[in-house]
């Protein structure tokens, strides 16, 4: 993540130096993202809107349209509508890779510059630019941290998200992270990336297992419910909870040295802004941007937490 941020800084410098007439070039950029149906996607919408403001200010010729869609089918329709208005670039975070590969392919065939964020398409040749967090790495970092903290031995429980690719990747990464240790995963259940559901699942875990050393719940939203369930049960056997994504409340707890939330693993919704910035750069700054940009799944600890704390973000 650090290296990525430095890259961006360099980028901003480069853009400042670019010739003025290039900045007045008319470019229409469409941003198609999921509607804010949970905390993380809420963050995506927030960062997309914010990046729209800063980028449009920086490049007077740039016009950005942000469109949110509640599900895959609606997003496919939205893509058609956006294309019909005539666009030069598309930045999209697809609901679902398989479903949206063909609709995005059709956009691409119109000669549009396509940037895909977070969820890779089934056919990677479509995208000009791919910006994503590192899902397997998010799982692996969390797993390795737990392995280290528990001294390679202990009983843990896992709360998964929804049964989709991202969840599977994180799961696999996590299993790799704890491989070779005596850490036993007592149970894995879906918490649907929802605080309420995670609360219920955690209550049930607590009833089922008399001793749990740590919890991995793969998302900070769910960590909120988990912490509440543990607090209610007055259980002291649980040493800590590891979430993920970098929700501001959780980062704050890490920074404050909360022993239940010692770390967090980054998977920032701000990646949409990164993608928009890079895409704009393709048009206004003569810098090659095609390729894949994978952001690190940085482990946030008490020492570096302040760097990742954005109190104004909704997430």
């Amino acid at each position: 993540m650090k290296s990525m941020l430095m890259g961006l800084a360099a980028f901003a410098l480069a853009s400042a130096a670019t010739a003025v007439q290039a900045q007045e070039r008319q470019v229409n950029m469409a941003v198609s993202i999921p509607a804010a149906d949970h905390g993380w996607t809420g963050g995506v919408v927030y960062h997309a809107e914010r990046a729209k403001k800063t980028l449009e200010a920086r490049y007077p010729g740039l016009k950005i349209t942000v469109k949110t869609s509640p599900d895959g089918a609606t997003q496919a329709n939205a893509l058609e509508d956006l294309t019909a208005q005539g666009i030069d670039a598309l930045v999209t975070l697809p609901h679902n890779s398989d479903e949206l590969t063909d609709p995005i392919r059709q956009v691409k065939e119109k000669g549009v510059f396509v940037t895909v964020v977070d969820r890779a398409l089934s056919d990677p040749t479509i995208q000009d630019l791919y910006v994503a967090g590192n899902n397997p790495e998010l799982g692996r970092v969390a797993g390795e941290y737990i392995k280290k903290e528990l001294g390679g031995k202990g009983d843990i429980v896992v709360i998964r998200g929804l049964p989709i690719v991202i969840d599977e990747e994180r799961q696999k990464g996590f299993d790799e992270g704890i491989k070779g240790s005596d850490i036993k995963v007592l149970d894995r259940q879906f918490g649907n990336w929802s605080r309420d559901d995670a609360f219920k699942v955690m209550q049930d875990y607590l009833a089922k297992y008399k001793k749990i050393d740590a919890v991995w719940c793969q998302d900070d939203d769910m960590a909120v419910g988990v912490l509440e369930a543990i607090q209610q049960a007055d259980r002291t056997d649980i040493k800590f909870v590891v979430g993920g994504a970098g929700m501001k409340e959780m980062i704050k707890r890490v920074a404050d040295g909360d022993s239940m939330i010692p770390v967090d693993v980054l998977y920032p919704p701000a990646m949409i802004a990164t993608a928009m910035e890079l895409t704009a750069g393709n048009f206004y700054d003569q810098v090659p941007v095609r390729g894949s940009y994978i952001l690190d799944a940085t482990l946030v600890t008490k020492e570096n937490a302040q760097e990742f704390y954005f109190p104004d973000s909704p997430f």
Partner: peptide
């Protein structure tokens, strides 16, 4: 009072 928050998934 349970979780102290309303989110987009509340009441789903």
């Amino acid at each position: 009072p349970r979780l102290g928050a309303a989110t987009a998934t509340t009441g789903l």
